[in-house]
Computed example of a mutant assay.
Amino acid sequence: MPTIPPIDYGDLQGGLVRMMERYQDEGTLTGDADEDDAIRADANAALLGLLYDQRVRAEYAFTGPLRLKERLGHLDMATIAAMDFDEFQPIFAEKPAVHRFTNKMAENTQKVAKMIAEEYDGDAANMWNDGADINTIEKRIKKLPGFGKGKASKIKYVLHYFGQRDFS
């Protein structure tokens, strides 16, 4: 398990804060080190986890992409974007559901996947691994369906704590 230096998250509230505090106390964000590692290994999972961080427990939101990946066998954005919604949605809704709002979040997942596939070569890491500063990254994130100012402001912490980009 990697040691991630803490960064100040005093301006945040909610489940993501609870996850970061758990990391400081126990060394795991989600409560499961293997799940943390799986999210760290896949930038698309980290991004989708932030997408799902809405009206569900944060740990459940961030592990949602892992449930989706287990069912599909991948998190290939082009493939997800190209799937027929009527075939994708039942996979998304299968219990335990990827997210409680199975229709809207399945729809947003496919929309985000399409943008990542078309604009970032299928890899969410390309949104932040080009040396862009945090303001530029937040602007890119806000262009994605389902991401507003609030979620975009959390990307710094998601990237940092899930090992995608060091902001210490």
Rank of each mutant, 00 (worst) to 15 (best):
V56M: 06
V56G: 02
M77D: 11
R57I: 03
Y60I: 02
A82K: 03
D84P: 05
P65A: 07
K69F: 00
R55T: 15
A82E: 12
V56W: 03
F85G: 13
F88M: 13
L68D: 08
A81W: 09
F62G: 12
A61V: 05
G73P: 14
A78R: 15
A58W: 04
K69I: 00
L68G: 08
A61K: 04
E59K: 04
A81R: 06
T79F: 10
R67E: 02
G64A: 06
G73H: 14
D86M: 10
G64T: 00
T63F: 02
D76A: 04
M83P: 04
L75R: 04
A82R: 06
G73L: 12
A82L: 05
F62D: 11
T79L: 14
R55L: 10
D84I: 03
R55S: 14
F88C: 11
T63A: 04
F88R: 11
F62T: 02
R57T: 01
R57L: 11
F88Y: 13
K69V: 00
P65L: 05
L66A: 09
G64E: 04
A78Q: 15
T63I: 02
A58F: 06
F88D: 11
R55K: 10
V56R: 03
A61Q: 08
R55A: 07
H74R: 12
L75F: 01
E70Q: 14
D86A: 14
D76H: 12
A78P: 10
R67G: 08
M77I: 03
D86G: 12
T63N: 06
L66K: 04
A82W: 04
Y60P: 01
R57E: 14
L68K: 12
P65V: 01
Y60C: 07
L72V: 00
D86E: 14
F85I: 02
T63L: 06
R67M: 07
T79E: 15
A78K: 14
L72M: 06
R55W: 08
T79W: 15
D84R: 07
L66N: 13
P65Y: 01
E70V: 00
F85C: 11
R67C: 09
T79H: 13
A81C: 08
D76S: 07
L66S: 05
G73V: 09
L68I: 03
A81L: 07
F88L: 13
L68Q: 09
L72I: 00
D86I: 00
R57N: 13
V56D: 01
A82Q: 10
F88T: 08
E87G: 03
L75C: 06
Y60D: 12
L72Q: 01
L75I: 00
R55Q: 15
L75M: 09
R71M: 09
K69E: 05
T79K: 13
V56A: 01
F85T: 02
R67F: 06
R57F: 12
L66V: 01
E87T: 15
A58I: 00
R67A: 06
A78G: 15
F62K: 05
M83I: 08
R57H: 15
L75S: 02
M77N: 04
T79V: 13
R55G: 02
E87S: 10
L75G: 02
D86R: 11
D86Y: 09
F85M: 12
A81I: 09
P65G: 09
G64V: 00
D76E: 15
T79P: 10
I80S: 03
E87A: 11
Y60E: 12
G73C: 08
D76I: 10
E70T: 06
D84S: 09
A58E: 07
A58T: 15
Y60H: 07
Y60W: 11
